[in-house]
Amino acid sequence: MVEIITKIPLEYYIILASVLFCIGVIGVLIRRNALIIFMCVELMLNAVNMLFIAFSAYRGDASGQVFVFFIMAVAAAEVAVGLAIIVMIYRNTRSVDVGELNKLRY
């Protein structure tokens, strides 16, 4: 399994991570369900994680992988608070449609 870094160029990993990140961006832009938007944010976080690990493996530097560990810890905390906020929104508006949360506009 170690020989992958000699077979696959680093650019392929950059392209894969870019594609995943952009799919996440598109999801945030076109969906209105707050839960799906939140999942797309997770997708973007994971694309960045994969890029970090690829760079770290290709450079032989462990700092990148430690950084991914911290990103995962922060993402776990973010999900706990974010889902609490979404449940709160549902309790008050009876839906998770972000299109209904437009009071701040006026």
């Binding site: 690990i53 995962m72 776990a76």
Partner: peptide, 30 residues
């Protein structure tokens, strides 16, 4: 991918934290 890049610790953490904890939380809320 992480296993292919020989990042075994993060592969396990990814399964446990993301697929295990975070996605169960999402499913539970949905």
């Amino acid at each position: 991918h992480y296993i292919l890049l020989n990042a075994q610790f993060l592969a396990i953490v990814n399964i446990i934290v993301y697929a295990g904890a975070i996605m169960v939380l999402f499913l539970f809320v949905i």
